[in-house]
């Protein structure tokens, strides 16, 4: 139960992080059309942040 509790807290933290990463005003920082690594910066950022949330969740669940 203690383990489950810890996992729950981690997931809540990841949720909060995801909310911050994937909404305004964080997105405003990357609101440029410049190409980085051949991809528009904003698109690159959103996909990377998205992937980060998924990976963190996977770590929190599977560990």
């Amino acid at each position: 139960m203690i383990k489950g509790d810890k996992r729950g807290q981690r997931l809540l933290a990841i949720f909060a992080l995801g909310c911050i990463l994937l909404t305004y005003p964080m997105l405003q920082i990357f609101n440029h059309g410049d190409l980085v690594l051949g991809v528009p910066l904003l698109v690159l950022y959103v996909f990377l942040a998205w992937l980060a949330v998924i990976v963190l969740t996977a770590l929190a669940i599977e560990r």
């Binding site: 996992r7 729950g8 997931l11 809540l12 990841i14 949720f15 995801g18 909310c19 994937l22 904003l42 698109v43 959103v46 998205w50 949330v53 998924i54 969740t57 669940i61």
Partner: peptide, 20 residues
């Protein structure tokens, strides 16, 4: 443009909360 994305970001966030 990027406007198609939130439809999939929302479920991602809710999935993180799926445990609850």
């Amino acid at each position: 443009g990027v406007g198609f994305l939130p439809i999939y970001l929302g479920p991602t966030l809710m999935a993180v909360l799926g445990w609850f």
